[in-house]
């Protein structure tokens, strides 16, 4: 393997590991709101590292450009979907399990 391929493989593998960590969090976390944070690990660091790894392998080609578009799509769409989920859950009256204190004012 060339050095570039080794770097790409490390990035891909680390990205995959972050995806697994996020999914473990998705299963382990106690309630819906905390699970959202775990899912966002998948969508940020996990997806980001995998895409960067693939871009290294693709080099300066159209495939790379498509991966950039893919990254931009995740970057803009995933917070929108997460916020929509959070807001819908909040409006349906799902209470977050908080450690005692709720709704502190701004400092």
């Amino acid at each position: 393997m060339t050095p570039l391929e080794i770097v790409a493989m490390v990035l891909l593998t680390v990205g995959g590991v972050f995806c697994v960590i996020g999914a473990v969090g998705l299963v382990r976390m106690p309630d819906f709101y905390t699970r959202m944070h775990a899912a966002s690990v998948i969508e940020t660091l996990g997806a980001g590292l995998v895409l960067v790894g693939l871009m290294l392998l693709a080099g300066f080609t159209l495939a790379s450009a498509k991966l950039v578009i893919l990254g931009a799509l995740i970057f803009f769409a995933s917070p929108t979907a997460t916020h929509a989920l959070a807001k819908a859950a909040h409006e349906s009256g799902l209470e977050p399990a908080t450690g005692g204190e709720r709704e502190k004012g701004p400092e």
Partner: peptide, 16 residues
């Protein structure tokens, strides 16, 4: 070879 670990990881993520 380059892709094996990440594919396994992503499949595990899907299962979880």
């Amino acid at each position: 070879m380059i892709y094996a670990p990440v594919i396994v990881a992503l499949l595990a993520t899907l299962a979880l």
